[in-house]
């Protein structure tokens, strides 16, 4: 339940407190330390686990951790191969990074909502929001990076002229140039926005419901918390998967020459 300081502000205070990031600085140049810290830690966890498996990788009988890692790798590789037909050194590792990193972000959602903020509180930090995917900065950082790659590959594969042609002359031919351009711009810009907002929205709402459940009397909490957590296992995996697949789809679209 809420800490003493916020109990007085009631349920609204509790919810707002849980969804306020630990930030330093003012205006645009402020930093959400919790988001940066947890995503960096989770990223490090990801590369450490996979690096250990990669170093011990053997073509003989794999160890349990290697088998697990290989399962994920093959899964991602299959997804990429199904969608993306060109040859790229970048796309499969990119997809893997997105899948695992986003999954780990989302996984933070399954920790009881009060534990980590309580620990942080003891260490003197007033606010603590532990799920990086409930921070628009985190989801947009991913989607804007992907967007940059889309633009980069579009220009690399089709050339500046080819890309400009695609923006202006499809889908209705050169006579409808301004209209085409408008459509295409909306289409392109919708990609990063939808990617980021989909992930953010799902996880923000999920976290909010966990917080609401935490406001209920203790004897009801398990009744609602347990099914929601189980359901959330599906949600977090699905959202990570969707983010990965859409990234691969967008990049393969950027690779296709019309």
């Amino acid at each position: 339940m809420a800490t003493e300081a916020h109990a007085a502000e009631g349920a609204t205070g509790y919810i707002v407190h849980h969804l306020t990031p630990l930030s330093v600085g003012e205006g645009f140049w402020s930093l959400h330390l919790d988001t940066l810290f947890f995503s960096a830690v989770l990223g490090a966890l990801f590369v450490w686990f996979f690096k250990v498996a990669a170093e011990k990788a053997t073509i003989g009988v794999p160890s349990t951790s290697q088998a697990f890692v290989e399962m994920i790798i093959e899964f991602v590789d299959q997804q990429v191969k199904d969608t993306f037909h060109g040859r790229s050194e970048l796309i499969a590792p990119l997809a893997l990074t997105i899948f695992i990193w986003v999954f780990l972000w989302n996984f933070m959602d399954l920790f009881p909502v009060d534990i980590l903020p309580a620990v942080a509180g003891m260490m003197g930090m007033e606010y603590m929001r532990v799920v990086p995917s409930t921070d628009l900065n985190a989801t947009f950082a991913l989607s804007i990076s992907v967007f940059c790659l889309i633009i980069f590959y579009s220009i690399k594969i089709k050339g500046v002229v080819g890309f400009a042609k695609e923006l202006t002359c499809t889908p209705f031919g050169p006579w409808m140039m301004p209209f085409n351009l408008l459509l295409k711009l909306v289409e392109e810009i919708a990609k990063p926005i939808s990617l980021a907002l989909r992930l953010f929205g799902n996880l923000y709402a999920g976290e909010l419901i966990f917080i609401l459940i935490a406001l209920l009397p203790w004897y009801i909490q398990p009744l609602l918390g347990f099914p929601w957590a189980v359901f959330h296992i599906l949600i977090i995996t699905l959202q990570a998967f969707i983010f990965m697949v859409l990234t691969v789809v967008y990049l393969s679209m950027a690779h296709e020459d019309h």
């Binding site: 960096a40 290989e70 893997l96 990193w101």
Partner: peptide
């Protein structure tokens, strides 16, 4: 805010590391 930039840097580093040290040996094996 600037968190976005920090996150993008982290992401770039992660992707680079995965591309260079994680993906090739595992997929090779």
């Amino acid at each position: 805010n600037a968190t976005l930039i920090g996150q993008m840097i982290t992401f770039t580093l992660l992707v680079w590391f995965t591309m260079k040290y994680i993906w090739p040996p595992l997929i090779g094996a």
